[in-house]
Amino acid sequence: MRYAKIVFSLLTLLLVVSGCGTKRQYFEPESVSGKLSYDGSLPASIMDAGRDGATLENGQVLTSKGLSSVTLPKEYVFLGENNGRYIASSQCGALLVMDAHQKVLFKKECGTAVASASLKGNLLAMVLGSNELLLVDMSDGKELMHLTQDNVFALDSRIAAPYFLGDLIIFPTLDGKLLIVDEQSRKPIRDVVVSNEKFFGNIIYLQVLGDRLVAATKSKVVSISPKSINFLEAEVRDVIVLKNRIFVFTKDGKVMLTDADLKVLKDRKFTFATFAGTIHGDFIYMIEKGGYVIATDIDLVSTNVYKLPDAIESNLFTTEDTLYYKNRFFKLDRKQ
């Protein structure tokens, strides 16, 4: 009996020590250059946030351009905007497109939730939560293309939307591929496998700058040009592309500066930092979940840390120069 008690005590001690060893560590800057205050408030708090926008609790939406006066119907969330037309979906699989005057231009029952969507003229490109890819003509509701991809089991909430590029449509699939479709024939002409993970392996970033396409999943970044395809493996939190510079922000608090072909030129590590988002102007500003803004120049040489009024604990949305959190926002002063 005594032996059993000793073994039990040792196991308990081991569990305690093990628990202490995995205790969450927090970012603690060596110095803080100042405190930031929010510039203003929103009419309601953020209810849902994605890659291209956010939905407030009152139904209004935030886009890359800022706060819109459009109010979505109850139970709908914002997916994207194109030339004053707003795409929204419900959890039940209903999708609608409405104009700035809230007139419904198109509505479709998809049967499953819509993960992302984009518009070009009357063409509506969609990625469903079932990893089905659709191309719909909104003038008559006809499905011009319907492709089924491999099943996925879990998704990263930062879901990239389809991209119209000239006569091509780039579909970011939920199983980590870029499927390139010819708009005229509506046939796939090429695919690029970025990663093939079944859990949280969807494309989380997709951007085209000039003749270069940059995309990322949670574990890999790809840069595609007419001359080459290059990959960078990393635990990706976010990506920013500025001209011929690519900045990759990782889950372990590192920011990597690469050239256009993803060759790492320099990196900086911010121990225990957890990036919640990024904004940029003359500097890169990393929003840290503990309630800090880490500012660095585009060469990753100088760094300043500023304190936000509170920690980031819920939905956050960032545009190029503005941070939105709960019902407040902070905007970069580009005059400085």
Rank of each mutant, 00 (worst) to 15 (best):
V7Y: 05
V221N: 00
M98D: 01
K35A: 11
I189Y: 09
D238C: 01
S33P: 05
V181M: 09
R237H: 13
E320A: 13
A115H: 03
G176W: 00
L265A: 09
L13W: 09
A260I: 07
A115R: 02
Y324L: 01
Q60H: 06
Y76P: 00
P43A: 03
G291F: 10
T258H: 06
A94K: 14
F247H: 01
V127S: 05
V239A: 04
Y3V: 15
G21H: 12
D182Q: 08
N83L: 14
S219H: 09
M286A: 14
Q60A: 07
L124T: 04
L96I: 08
G121E: 04
H101D: 11
D167H: 10
D156F: 11
G281I: 05
V236Y: 00
F8G: 10
V77S: 06
K142S: 12
K103A: 11
L209N: 15
D297N: 14
V136G: 02
L265R: 07
S139A: 12
V301M: 15
S45W: 10
E313Q: 13
K243E: 08
E320N: 09
P73Q: 03
K108V: 11
G80R: 04
S69L: 11
M145P: 06
F27Y: 10
V97I: 15
L308P: 00
T12E: 08
T319C: 01
Q25P: 10
S219A: 11
L67W: 01
D167G: 10
S225R: 00
F106V: 03
K263F: 11
L147F: 06
R158V: 06
D299E: 14
D182G: 05
